[in-house]
Design a protein around this nucleic acid. Structure first.
Lengths: 110, 110
DNA sequence: ATAATATGTAACAATAATGTTACGCATATT
DNA sequence: AATATGCGTAACATTATTGTTACATATTAT
């Protein structure tokens, strides 16, 4: 297992393009080219964003023919969630909203 | 109201020292010098971290005599939480744990 | 075999981030 | 009034980040 540090994960998601790449991948596996086409920067630039996401273990990739397919691995985002959630208590009012959200989600799954 | 962008907030928390400053301030208001003493870098370096946190609206400050007291403003962290929580559904297993946590928290408050 | 396609890396440039020391300014102390 | 304290900014050095174009490599198509 690759395993990534909290620092790597926070740095990885600090960039808007990389966050959007993760958002895109939450819709399913995508080849590198298709990911690159979704952004206004060059393909090599996106390739390096993907490398950073790989190093943070936020994406996995596999080769299929001459394409390389990337997929989301959201697990390291827990590190971010865990840190941020320490501040939830300050929001207070949002707790009911959150509970409602969780409940809604649970129902959707059953 | 200052108002900060999502980008500013993500950049602000990308740095470990700044995250630790916020952690420190979650224990209450602190003067700049005391914050600086808590870290292995120089006082001006911490001063600039504090400036970035101010610009991201994550801390507030007030003058008291010759000291400047900083306090936490966690509200902009919601932007981070909202983004990350979109990935919670992938964790799945943690949903029940989260719900339990929220429920526990609610009980504590009533 | 040759050409086209998909992707990553190398080399470079420009800018942002992070740290340091020296300094300036306001407030408190003696 | 003179000195000490607390804190921010300026100027600078170093390294990280982000982008570009040119190139190398692997796979598929003709």
């Amino acid at each position: 297992m690759p395993a990534s540090t909290e620092e790597e994960v926070f740095r990885a998601v600090a960039d808007a393009t990389r966050r959007e790449i993760l958002d895109l991948l939450s819709g399913g596996e995508r080849p590198a080219g298709e990911i690159a086409d979704a952004f206004p920067v060059s393909r090599p630039a996106v390739s390096r964003h993907l490398r950073m996401l790989r190093e943070a273990d936020l994406v996995a990739s596999r080769k299929e023919g001459r394409r390389r397919l990337y997929s989301l691995n959201p697990e390291p985002l827990r590190k971010v969630d865990e840190w941020v959630s320490r501040y939830e208590r300050f929001w207070g009012a949002s707790l009911e909203r959150l509970k409602a959200h969780v409940e809604r989600d649970r129902k959707r799954r059953e």
